[in-house]
Amino acid sequence: MRVRNLVSAVALSTALVTGAGVLTDAPAKAAPVSTDLGSVDLGSSDLLTPNSIFLWQGIATRYIVVLGAKMGTYGQTPAILDRRLNVAARMAKQHPFNRMIVSGGNTWWLPVSEAQFMNLGLIRRGIPMWQMVNEGRSTSTVQNASYTVGMLKAMGANGAVIVTNGFHMGRALGDFRAAARKQHARIEFRAAYA
């Protein structure tokens, strides 16, 4: 009983600090912050999906790639990027030995890349920093693909799951496959919709 009360107190204080609780009248502006600091989610039914099986078959050679999105003027995370980070975090917890590449460069006038903002968002969702690799030079989907494929090839990858939104997925997969052909990289790409 004391443990339940302690957990409830921690959840309540976290909700009050982050503004994600029901005690505020204003709607939450950001995704709720996870209080889960790095646990592995092996009890999920998502472990038998094609993407999950794909990642488990090549722990050292298959990556999760998360594409960035333009940040707000003051570094606010757009809703489309929040959805990408939520999907990526869930996958990373289910596959703690697969590395993740966060891809995105220019953030307008801010001295921080989209990839670095995404690092913070993933850390807040319980993903350890060692699981992430940054690609922070790209300013377009074509450059996301070109630079990330170069990194994947250099790391000996043979596959990657691309995390982006549905409206963006077709173009992103096309760009990644074209970049792999151009760089003579034998990498299979799969879609993970946010």
Rank of each mutant, 00 (worst) to 15 (best):
K153V: 05
V33L: 13
M71R: 10
K182P: 00
G121K: 07
A31N: 04
T18G: 12
K93I: 04
D175C: 14
K182E: 12
V66S: 03
S13L: 13
G121R: 05
M118E: 05
A60E: 12
S39V: 08
K93M: 11
D25Q: 12
S44D: 07
V10N: 07
V33E: 09
F176K: 00
M151D: 06
L37C: 11
S34N: 06
I64A: 04
T107A: 13
M132T: 06
E135A: 00
A192S: 12
R125L: 11
G170R: 04
V17P: 04
P27K: 14
A26N: 15
N165F: 01
S103C: 12
P32D: 06
G104Q: 07
M91H: 01
I127Q: 03
N5S: 09
S39L: 10
I101N: 05
Q183I: 01
V112Q: 11
N86A: 15
W130E: 12
L42Q: 10
K29F: 12
Q143F: 05
V112M: 13
T73E: 14
R181W: 09
A15T: 02
D82K: 10
T61C: 08
N86P: 00
V102F: 07
M169F: 07
A192D: 03
A15W: 12
R181V: 14
M132Q: 15
V112H: 12
V66H: 03
P27L: 14
F97R: 13
G136I: 01
L85Q: 15
R4H: 00
K93C: 07
A191E: 09
Y147T: 01
M71N: 04
D41V: 13
R62D: 02
